[in-house]
Design a protein around this nucleic acid. Structure first.
Length: 564
RNA sequence: GCGCCUCUAGCUCAAUUGGCAGAGCAACGGACUCUUAAUCCGCAGGUUCUGGGUUCGAGUCCCAGGGGGCGCACCA
């Protein structure tokens, strides 16, 4: 058993015994007196990966391995005990214990006196302590960042949802599992891309700023393009541009992108959310059902290693094939009441009211039918199930059903009582599409703000000819909720929409009046809470855009705290 | 937008019927040569979300406003 290296010089003599190790190269230390923080630090091992390295499984308590490593991370626990000290060093792979000894570790007292949350880089030998914990016995170490603020109760973390969402960086460190959720999110996106690429799909990016917000029933956010002297809308769907690309010859195309809907916030709705849309030429909605179940199951298998999950305490089996059933079949199963477009509209309305579903005499039968389904059946469907064949009346972009008049070839995959997406055999006929959108325009004129807008550029594209095409939209956030067993969409969105904390709007107004908009200044002066200062800094980019050119006459709230 | 609940130290939470606003963790100072939410000693920390009101007296009760949670509405 080798003696522990006592100095950096001695440490370097260890190199021959660990071939992969190179001397740590950090720079800047000691050069600038005012900032001893180095500009870089080289690690040889990740903390969590080292902690679970099987090569050290047989290392007995009290033994040294002879392997020298360099690790970095944040101090999450610190137990200084006179002339020895223990610290938990955590990076994004996990944690390894640092073991410091006054006669081995340089600047021992300083290390033992660091605060929780500080970032530290350390070099030393891998050892197992007498109490059996695999550790790095620190010889050299360097402070990489000081944590001037703490991360809450070290055992209980932070619970306040407001704090968790507004200061996600704190949440990520303070609460076990939060980072894992977002690592899964990243893997889900990667898996979707890989699986679709394997099937010959290409990924594209289409505009976020739209002159006409269409492709879904939703109210848009409005913004203003100064150079064009024109209002624009943030997209509410990806659909119309992607179909234009099918017209252009991209036979299998998809986009994963943020869409924005000017609606309420709830545990299942964030005003900006991530949508996957894909279009496959020569396919119908049956093909898309097969693709959907294979994609979702494939992602689950790739990310979680299984297709049978537990969601909110209930088993959920994503293994294909999924059940296929019509909307009417499912309503009949759930309520025992026969519904459908074959009934006279009056009778359908009567049955709706019988089921406790409020409908207006102005509502068309299609709307009534969907209303019945959504109010009585959808939330009870655990699924997965493909809910098939929606009324044409409420589906302006879907193609007529090949054998059921009044219906379109459309389905929604429903899992755990929620729609995961929406898909159709796409309507390709430009004349029929125009008629459908004109119907929507009439509804809009009659006061339905969510009726779909008529997009001439889309219609013109269809006139060039779109082949039979199957399309699918998936709510990626909701898919991630299923795979991470989360009930609230805010748990899978890093920075969910929150109301701006107001209260000092008067200061914001005066600040923007003297032209400090764009440096995060509007709220800075007036807010005593430190957290709010970071908030305004985070709004910088948005403010700069808004502040370009003329001074924006923003209202206090909009001006001071815009989130993106 | 409506209803119910909620807001106390940096964090997690106490505070009797309306009667001096507290603890643990973190931070700060100190002790300790194998800790595992270490332990021990010490110190500091407050616009009880904001503004009114009732009262001899308000964290507590009332009114208004703000933030948050949940539900409804909205939402394919």
């Amino acid at each position: 058993m080798a003696h522990p290296p006592r100095s950096a010089a001695a440490l370097r003599t260890e190199r021959s015994r660990c071939g992969s190790w190179a001397p740590p190269t950090w720079s800047g230390g000691g050069v600038l007196v005012s900032s001893p923080i180095p500009y870089r630090f080289e690690t040889t091992r990740a903390a969590g990966e080292l902690a679970s390295d099987k090569a050290f499984e047989d290392l007995a308590p009290g033994e040294s391995s002879g392997v020298v490593v360099s690790v970095a991370g944040r101090l999450m626990r610190l137990r200084a005990q006179g002339r020895v000290a223990f610290a938990e060093l955590r990076d994004w792979t996990g944690a390894i214990q640092l073991f410091a000894q006054s006669d081995v570790t340089e600047r021992f007292d300083e290390l033992a006196g660091r605060a929780l949350g500080d970032w530290v880089g350390a070099v030393g030998e891998v050892v197992r302590t007498k109490r059996g914990e695999l550790s790095v016995r620190v010889v050299e170490w360097v402070l990489l960042a000081e944590a001037r603020r703490g991360f809450g109760d070290k055992w209980r973390g932070v619970n306040d949802p407001d704090l968790r969402y507004r200061q996600r960086e704190v949440d990520l460190w303070a609460n076990e599992g939060v980072r894992d959720t977002f690592l899964v999110r990243s893997k889900v996106l990667a898996a979707i891309r890989r699986l679709l690429s394997e099937r010959g799909f290409i990924e594209v990016e289409t505009p976020v700023l739209h002159q006409v917000a269409s492709g879904a029933h939703a109210r848009p956010f409005v913004t203003h393009y100064n150079s064009l002297h024109s209002d624009f809308y943030l997209r509410i769907a990806l659909e119309l541009h992607l179909k234009r690309l099918v017209v252009g010859g991209f036979e299998r195309v998809f986009e994963i992108g943020r869409v924005f809907r000017n609606e309420g916030i709830s545990p299942r709705h964030n005003p900006e959310f991530t949508e996957l849309e894909l279009y496959q030429a020569y396919a119908d909605y049956h093909d898309v059902m097969a693709l959907t179940e294979e994609l979702v199951a494939g992602v689950s298998l790739e990310v979680l290693g299984k297709t049978t999950l537990t969601y909110q305490g209930r088993p959920l089996d994503l293994t294909p094939p999924w059940r296929r059933a019509t909307l009417e079949e499912l309503v009949a199963e759930q309520t025992g009441v026969e519904v459908g477009l074959h009934l006279p509209p009056e009778e359908l309305r009567r049955r709706a009211r019988e089921l406790g579903v409020a409908v207006s005499d102005d509502d068309g039968p299609g709307k009534v039918l969907v209303e019945i389904y959504e109010k009585t059946t959808e939330s009870s469907l655990w699924g997965p199930v493909f809910v098939m064949d929606y009324p044409k009346e409420v589906s302006p972009l879907a193609r007529d059903h090949r054998s059921r008049p009044g219906y379109v070839e459309r389905f929604e995959p429903v899992i755990a009582g929620r729609e995961l997406g929406n898909a159709f055999s796409e309507l390709a006929d430009p004349d029929e599409q125009r008629r459908r959108l004109l119907d929507q325009a009439a509804e809009r004129a009659a006061g339905d703000e969510e009726a779909m807008a008529l997009d001439e550029e889309f219609l013109r594209a269809l006139e060039h000819g779109m082949p039979p095409t199957g399309g699918l939209g998936i709510g990626v956030d909701r898919l991630i909720m299923l795979l991470t067993d989360q009930a609230n969409i805010r748990e899978v969105v890093l920075f969910p929409a929150l109301r701006p904390p107001s209260g000092r709007g008067d200061v914001a107004v005066s600040a923007s009046a003297v032209g400090t908009v764009g440096v995060g200044g509007p709220s800075e002066g007036g807010l005593s809470e430190e957290g709010s200062g970071e908030e305004s800094a985070g709004a910088d980019s948005g403010e700069e855009l808004a502040g370009e050119g003329s001074a924006p006459p923003a209202t206090p709230n909009e001006g001071s705290r815009r989130r993106d």
